[in-house]
């Protein structure tokens, strides 16, 4: 029994990583109407940047901060230079962001090589908490905590600040927001950078759990797209629930049916879509 409880923690910790990346993906989708297929690449870059900063003898926390900032800045550049030109053109956006995943993945291979690497667990958290027979690694507890704090921050930003109100209004009626004197383009850039930063954060925090390897960007992208679909397009709250569900199912699935865990994740998506086509927290869109 106790092994399962420990595995539950692992599942929730993975879920929190998925939440951090899916939250950005779903907010970008809801606000900007862009399916950012390059979002997995931001995750990958977050990990690799942190790896580089740490190999320059910065500590984990500083590396984390810098990696998130650099990823967000890269998000700003990509939005300003490329995505900016393609608002409203869905097919072009898909091609662009899909193309970007290859470009970024190849650059990563070129810069960092293809060897599997990991980021060491920071010393402060390199311990575990024992309750009875159960041993909980402190780092996983920390990841869960960060995910929960992030959810609270997102809730606060969305419902208690003017920027949050502007973003919600932008989802309702973008042209009207602009007609009230708000620079919607600037809001878009900010949202995109925020989402990229969150993906970077997920990547760094995932470093000690998942490691870093070629192709992790597309693995994580598929998982977070599933989270977004299950949670409901544009709803970060849905992503929170969906991500934890996926994290748990994937982890427990690996114990019970090692070869089928991804299949179970897809099955969950199918079941959710059959019962609630708009996702757990999605709004019903009337065309």
């Amino acid at each position: 029994m106790s092994i399962y409880i420990v595995q539950l923690l692992t599942g929730v910790a993975y879920g929190m990583l998925y939440f951090m990346i899916a939250a950005g993906l779903t907010i970008i989708l809801g606000v900007m109407n862009v399916v950012n297929l390059a979002h997995g690449a931001f995750f990958l870059l977050g990990t690799y940047f942190a790896f580089t900063f740490m190999s320059l003898h910065l500590n984990f926390w500083l590396a984390l901060l810098l990696a998130v900032i650099v990823t967000a800045i890269l998000g700003i550049i990509i939005e300003k230079l490329l995505i900016n030109k393609l608002y409203g053109k869905e097919l072009e956006q898909v091609l662009l962001t899909f193309g970007l995943t290859f470009v970024i993945a190849d650059c990563a291979k070129w810069i960092w090589g293809t060897e599997m690497q990991t980021i060491a667990v920071p010393e402060l958290l390199n311990s575990s908490i024992t309750i009875g027979e159960m041993v909980f690694p402190a780092y996983r507890l920390f990841v869960v905590l960060v995910g929960c704090i992030l959810a609270v921050i997102l809730w606060y930003l969305e419902s208690r600040t003017r920027v949050g109100a502007i973003i919600r209004a932008g989802v309702d009626d973008r042209a009207m927001v602009a007609a009230l004197g708000i620079n919607v383009r600037l809001v878009f850039t900010g949202v995109f950078a925020f989402g990229a930063g969150l993906a970077g954060l997920s990547g760094v925090l995932g470093g000690p759990l998942i490691g870093m390897y070629t192709g992790m960007d597309s693995d994580i992208l598929v998982t977070s797209l599933i989270v977004v679909v299950i949670g409901g397009l544009g709803s970060w709250k849905g992503s929170f629930v969906g991500a934890i569900l996926i994290g748990l199912i994937e982890t427990l699935g690996k114990i019970w049916f090692p070869s089928l865990s991804m299949l179970i994740v897809f099955l969950l998506m199918v079941v959710v879509l059959m019962i609630r086509p708009q996702g757990l927290y999605g709004k019903v869109v009337s065309q």
Partner: peptide, 26 residues
């Protein structure tokens, strides 16, 4: 349009276009 609004032109659009996800105060 946002620049025009900042020049000092306010819009009360046809059909009101109130933001449904926002409270009245917001």
């Amino acid at each position: 349009s946002y620049q025009i609004s900042r020049e000092g032109i306010g819009l009360v659009p046809q059909g009101r276009r109130i933001f449904p996800s926002l409270s009245i105060r917001e």
